[in-house]
Amino acid sequence: MAVTDIGAAGAHAPALTEAELLRYREDGCTVVRGLFGHDEVDRLCDEFAALHAAGRAVPGHFEPRAGDDPLHRFPRVMQPHEFLPQARRTLLDARLRGVLEALFGEEVLAAQSMFYFKPPGARGQALHQDDFYLRVEPGTCVAAWLACDRIDRDNGGLEVVPGSHRTGLFCPEEADESLSFAREYVPPPAGLAAAPVDMAPGDVLFFDGHLVHGSQPNLSGDRFRRSFIAHYVGRSAERIGRYYRTLSMSGDRVPLPESEGAGPCGTEFAPRGPH
């Protein structure tokens, strides 16, 4: 998979070259190294650490519970930009906007944010396609996946299937519950294979909403694999699932009509007992 080295913390919003855009169109994904500074990543993570330390649920966003499953104690945070200031600033960051507008070729709208703690021992998320959940019409979404830790195969880093974005949306199979917290699984299309993406804090992976991607469990003994994920759509999008409350990159609400069949990113298995 190609890696694009553009942008730096504090720089003006970067743009992609024609060669980089062609590579993105071919693979369906590209990494921008060091787009955010380590200090910015630390401030973002501190906000989520404080949320977890407070020990209270935010209904519809963050609902930790007791249990042996690490994902019970450290569940993902859904739409944190709606109540956390640093998460909102990250979602609407001008550097992300610069890359996204180059990818879409038009103005973009922010549709969703998420934060994954992924502690040691946590299950991953089976290979899937994001637009299966967002149901953007017409077109698709683009994800901006910000690494908040050093991420590799040992702690459950992301895997992508380059080129799979050109094969359309698939009807998922059921995932292996022992490896994935989400039910849906999309096998790599014929002739294509999953490849790991190693990342450092501040790197951002941009990928097409039809790209097949996922992650394995965190097998490290003591390393979290924290990440902030945001989804965006082009301004020409006409419909999106009702869960996704679209905003302009200046933060104004821009409601879109609802599409059918959408849901949160990854339908979770029912809570499990001790394991």
Results as ranks from 00 to 15, higher is better:
H12D: 14
A13D: 07
A15E: 12
E18D: 12
R23I: 01
R25I: 01
D27N: 08
D27S: 10
V32Q: 10
H38M: 07
D39P: 11
D46E: 14
E47T: 15
A50M: 10
H52I: 05
H52K: 15
A54E: 14
P59F: 00
H61A: 11
F62E: 08
F62P: 15
F62Q: 12
A66V: 13
G67N: 04
G67W: 02
G67P: 13
D69F: 02
L71Q: 15
H72K: 13
Q79C: 04
P80C: 00
P80D: 00
E82Q: 15
E82S: 09
E82W: 01
R88A: 11
R88V: 05
R89W: 03
T90K: 09
T90L: 12
D93E: 09
A94Y: 01
R95F: 03
V99L: 02
L103D: 07
G105P: 15
G105W: 09
V108E: 08
A110S: 12
A110Y: 05
Q112Y: 08
S113E: 09
P120K: 03
A122W: 04
G124I: 10
G124F: 02
Q125F: 14
H128S: 07
Q129F: 06
D131I: 12
L134H: 08
V136G: 00
V136M: 04
V136Q: 01
G139N: 06
A143F: 01
W145R: 13
A147T: 13
C148N: 08
D152T: 08
D154Q: 15
N155R: 13
G163M: 10
T167E: 09
G168Q: 07
G168N: 06
G168M: 08
L169K: 09
F170Y: 04
P172S: 00
E174A: 10
A175D: 05
A175G: 04
A175C: 03
D176F: 04
D176R: 11
L179G: 01
L179Q: 14
F181I: 15
A182S: 14
A182E: 12
Y185M: 05
V186D: 01
P188E: 00
A190P: 14
G191W: 05
G191P: 15
L192K: 13
A195Y: 00
P196W: 00
V197I: 15
V197H: 02
M199A: 14
G202N: 06
D203G: 08
V204F: 03
D208W: 01
L211S: 03
H213N: 10
H213C: 10
G214W: 07
G214L: 07
S215R: 05
D222N: 13
D222Q: 06
S227H: 11
S227V: 15
A230L: 06
Y232R: 14
G234P: 14
E238D: 02
R245H: 11
T246D: 01
M249R: 10
M249W: 05
P255W: 00
L256M: 10
P257T: 01
E260Q: 12
E260I: 09
G261M: 05
G261V: 06
G261I: 09
T267E: 12
F269I: 08
A270Y: 01
P271T: 01
G273E: 10
G273P: 15
G273V: 07
